[in-house]
Amino acid sequence: MHLDPEALDASLRMLRHTPREPDLRRALAKVVTAVNRLFPCDGAGLMFADASGVLRYVTATDESGRSLELAQAELNEGPCVDAYVHDRLVASPDVTRDVRWPALARIVQTEVRAVLGAPVRLSGTPIGCLNLHAAEPRRWEDSDLRGLPAYAELIEEIICAALAAEHTGTLARQLERALHDRAVIERAIGFLMADRGLDAKEAFDHLRRQARNSRRRIVHISAELLGEPIPLPQRPSAS
Rank of each mutant, 00 (worst) to 15 (best):
A34Q: 09
G117H: 05
P126C: 10
L171E: 08
A162I: 04
R217M: 01
A29W: 02
A44W: 04
H133A: 06
P137D: 10
R139C: 08
T125K: 02
Q210L: 11
A83D: 01
D87C: 09
L179T: 06
T110V: 13
M14F: 11
D82G: 02
N76T: 06
A105L: 11
A135Y: 05
A135C: 07
R235V: 08
A134M: 10
L192G: 04
T170S: 15
A161Q: 15
F39Y: 13
T110A: 14
I218F: 00
V54F: 13
V99N: 14
A105K: 12
H180V: 08
S239N: 10
E157S: 15
D199A: 04
V35L: 05
L55T: 07
R138K: 13
D4G: 12
A188T: 02
R20H: 05
D87N: 13
L70K: 09
D87W: 04
D195M: 10
R37N: 11
L89G: 04
R182T: 09
L70C: 06
L122I: 10
P149L: 11
T59F: 12
Q109G: 15
R139F: 14
L163G: 12
E111W: 08
G117A: 15
I218E: 00
L75D: 00
I155L: 13
S123N: 14
H167Y: 13
R97T: 13
A200T: 06
P126D: 09
L232G: 05
C80D: 02
R208P: 00
L104D: 03
E224M: 04
A118V: 05
R16N: 06
A194G: 09
R13T: 12
R121I: 09
D195V: 03
A165H: 14
A161V: 12
V219N: 00
N131T: 13
H206K: 10
Y57T: 10
D42Y: 02
D62V: 07
E156R: 15
S239R: 08
E136P: 07
E156S: 15
R208K: 04
A200D: 07
H17E: 12
S214M: 01
A29T: 11
N131P: 05
A73D: 02
A161G: 15
A134H: 15
R235Q: 13
V219F: 00
I155Q: 08
I230V: 12
P236H: 03
R16W: 05
F39P: 06
Y84V: 03
Y151N: 03
L116H: 07
R100W: 14
L148F: 10
T18Q: 05
A114W: 06
G78F: 01
I127G: 02
L171T: 12
H2W: 13
Q210M: 11
C129W: 02
S239I: 06
E136T: 15
R20F: 06
R113C: 10
V85N: 03
R20D: 04
L3I: 14
R146P: 04
I107L: 14
I185H: 01
Y151R: 01
P137F: 11
E136Q: 14
E69C: 07
E176Q: 14
F191W: 13
I127K: 00
L12A: 04
V58A: 08
V81D: 00
V32K: 02
T110I: 11
E74W: 06
R88V: 07
L46Y: 09
L154S: 11
P236W: 04
T18R: 12
N76I: 05
W140M: 06
T110N: 10
E224S: 03
L192P: 02
I155E: 06
S222T: 00
E136D: 15
R121S: 08
R20K: 06
A118D: 08
E153L: 13
